[in-house]
Amino acid sequence: MSVSTWAKVKRNAPDSDFELGVAGKQFNWEIAYPGPDGKLGTDDDVKFDNDLHVPVNKVVRVHLTARDVIHSFYLPNLRLRQDAVPGRTILVWFEATKPGKYELPCSQLCGFGHSGMKGWLYAHTPEEYQKWAAENLAPKPQ
């Protein structure tokens, strides 16, 4: 019963066209948005440290990993916590329903800077998100 429940929770993320990469590293969250090719994990990914911007009422699929030691991706306001493990990519998802700025701390001891490893989730209204994306995710002219 526990196996099937676990699979139901962990293996059945809802579909979404909003995908992000998050990598924990001592002592930052590295947030990656798909670049102009629309694919994650390529050279044109747009990366930020610690600031995660998403629209509300949208399922966000996060491909979570770690660069060095085990970290833990923790969004207490959204009741989401998942370890980020070096060498593995783990899919987690969330859907923010209320615009705001929420804490994104690391919740696994990861070294002497662990207590300061904190990012922020910015949940925008769709209009605000479009504005932010246009300013920050659009390809820069060469």
Partner: peptide, 13 residues
């Protein structure tokens, strides 16, 4: 003592 935090000296100093 979760590895890899405990497995390399540079991670904890």
């Amino acid at each position: 003592a979760y590895a890899t935090l405990s497995a390399k000296a540079q991670y904890t100093g």
